Computed example of a mutant assay.
Amino acid sequence: MKQRKVPMRKDIVTGEMAPKKQLVRVVRNQAQEVSIDPTGKQSGRGAYISLDVAIAQKAKKERTFDHAFGVKIDDQFYDDLIAYVDHQQARRELFDND
């Protein structure tokens, strides 16, 4: 059976390439609203971050998404992002049997 190509994306914080499934997409829509995109299919400008709490905390400290999207983002978004990444990381450890 032919192996499928694994889509790769760049982590905006570390600059490392990783498989798309190991990253979470953050999107800015036309109304300049920034949100987490769990489906990876929302329309708008997207940026990816690894499913790692330390990297999410570094993004908050450096205000990475403020610079990437050119908009002012409040701290609540970064706190929600850290909580989401922590939850997804825990799910991956529980359910990933690979």
Rank of each mutant, 00 (worst) to 15 (best):
I82Q: 00
Y48R: 01
D86F: 00
I55R: 02
V24S: 00
Y48F: 10
E16K: 03
K61Q: 14
Q76G: 10
I36G: 01
G40R: 08
R25I: 00
R92V: 13
D79G: 07
V24C: 04
D79F: 11
S35W: 00
V85K: 09
L51P: 01
R25F: 05
L23A: 05
E33L: 12
I49L: 04
L23F: 09
V24M: 09
D52L: 07
D80I: 00
E93R: 10
V6R: 04
R25D: 02
K41M: 08
A56R: 08
I73R: 09
E62H: 12
L94G: 10
E33V: 01
A83R: 15
F69G: 01
K2T: 10
D37G: 00
V13A: 08
G40K: 02
G44A: 08
A47G: 06
V13K: 00
Q3Y: 05
L81K: 08
Q42V: 05
G70W: 07
D37R: 02
D98A: 15
G46P: 03
V85C: 06
I82R: 01
A68P: 05
D74Y: 08
F69S: 02
Q76Y: 14
V53Y: 06
D52A: 08
R91L: 15
R45F: 10
R45H: 12
G15V: 00
Q22G: 09
K2S: 15
K60R: 15
D96L: 10
V6P: 05
K5Q: 13
K5T: 13
K72W: 02
R4V: 10
Q22T: 00
Q22M: 11
I82L: 00
R4T: 03
I49G: 02
Q22R: 10
F77G: 06
D74L: 10
D98W: 13
G70P: 06
L23D: 01
V26W: 09
D66C: 11
I55W: 04
K58M: 11
V26G: 06
L81P: 03
M1Y: 05
K41Y: 12
D66A: 09
D96V: 05
N29A: 06
Q22N: 14
A56S: 14
I73W: 02
R63W: 06
Q89W: 10
I73P: 00
K10A: 07
P38T: 06
D52K: 04
A68S: 15
Q89R: 15
D66H: 06
P38W: 11
A31Q: 11
D86K: 14
T14Q: 06
K20C: 12
T64Y: 03
V53Q: 12
K58G: 02
E93N: 04
Q3I: 13
L81Q: 01
D98S: 13
Q32D: 15
Q57T: 09
I55M: 13
R28W: 07
R45D: 01
D11A: 03
M17W: 13
K61H: 10
M17C: 04
Y78K: 10
R45Q: 11
T14M: 03
K60E: 11
Y48K: 02
D98Y: 12
V71I: 08
R63F: 04
K60Y: 05
I49V: 05
L23K: 03
Q32Y: 12
A90T: 12
